[in-house]
Amino acid sequence: MTKDVFAAIAERRSVRRFSGEAVADATITRILEAALQAPSAGNLQPWKFYVVKKEESKKALGEAAWQQEFIASAPVVIVVSALPELVAAHYGPRGRDLYVIQDTAAAIMNLLLAAHAVGLGSCWVGAFLEKEVRRIIGAGEDELPVAIIPLGYAAEESAKPARRSLNDCVVILD
């Protein structure tokens, strides 16, 4: 099952309750392949994706995310980590401080939309203790954890959150 991109954008929700049903490795691979298609400055692709299935590691990630225990209930958790120095080598401080975040954010959004397109729920978690997440996943000091993404089949349908109107956030300069 795949969805039109506009439908996927409109329908995707943050999911914090998962059914517990396992996610096939082929499905995870497909989602990660979509993440890899994201644009990046200079096509440097400055990211790493840690696929976490071990129960104690998922629990530790939930604790590192200020007790967001729902993280551990997902069958799979993907931690997206950035490689700031790779981008800094090409673009200096702006690459290290901005481009690498933009690049990984684009990959994360592709991942979230791909997960939705194949019928999975997900949630972008950005509130966590960086050093603790780095330790849990075994990332190097040269990596910057950017997001924790729990993935799984939703246990319930999430309500559509309110959105600002187009008139409130678009400025047209003629």
Rank of each mutant, 00 (worst) to 15 (best):
S19I: 03
K3Y: 04
A106Y: 03
A139R: 01
I78M: 12
D103S: 12
G126A: 14
W47M: 15
D103Y: 08
A82R: 00
R164W: 08
A147K: 09
V80K: 12
R94D: 10
G121I: 09
I108N: 04
K59W: 04
H90L: 06
T29N: 13
S158W: 02
I71F: 00
V52W: 00
A60H: 13
Q67G: 03
V77W: 00
L98I: 13
L113M: 13
G140E: 15
V51M: 12
A159R: 13
I78G: 05
D168P: 02
A38E: 08
V51Y: 12
A24I: 05
A89E: 15
G126T: 10
M109Q: 12
F70A: 03
V125G: 10
P150E: 12
A105W: 05
P93N: 11
E85M: 06
S81M: 09
R163Q: 15
I101L: 12
V52F: 03
I136R: 08
P84Y: 08
A154R: 10
G20K: 11
L36E: 15
V79E: 06
K160Y: 02
F49L: 08
D4E: 15
A65H: 03
V146F: 12
Y99K: 06
A60W: 09
A82Q: 00
S122P: 01
G152P: 02
G138A: 07
E11S: 14
R13Y: 04
Y91Q: 14
L36S: 10
Y91E: 10
A64P: 02
I172L: 06
A107F: 10
S122H: 02
V118T: 10
V5E: 08
L173Q: 09
E141D: 15
G121F: 04
A7C: 05
V146S: 12
G95L: 10
V100T: 15
I137G: 09
A155D: 07
A41P: 02
S73E: 15
S165T: 15
N43T: 05
A72K: 04
S40G: 09
A147Y: 02
P39D: 07
I71P: 00
L83M: 11
F128Y: 11
W66E: 06
R163Y: 14
F49Y: 12
R135N: 11
R134D: 07
G121C: 09
P46Q: 14
L144C: 07
N110L: 13
Q68D: 02
G140C: 05
D97E: 15
I149L: 07
R16H: 03
D25N: 05
E143T: 14
L120H: 00
A154N: 11
W66R: 07
P150C: 12
R96L: 06
L113P: 08
R96Q: 11
L129W: 01
Y99N: 06
E69T: 11
R163H: 15
V15H: 01
E63L: 08
D142S: 14
L32K: 06
L83D: 14
M109T: 06
A159E: 14
L113F: 10
L129M: 03
T27A: 15
I101Q: 05
G62K: 05
G92M: 04
V5A: 13
P145L: 11
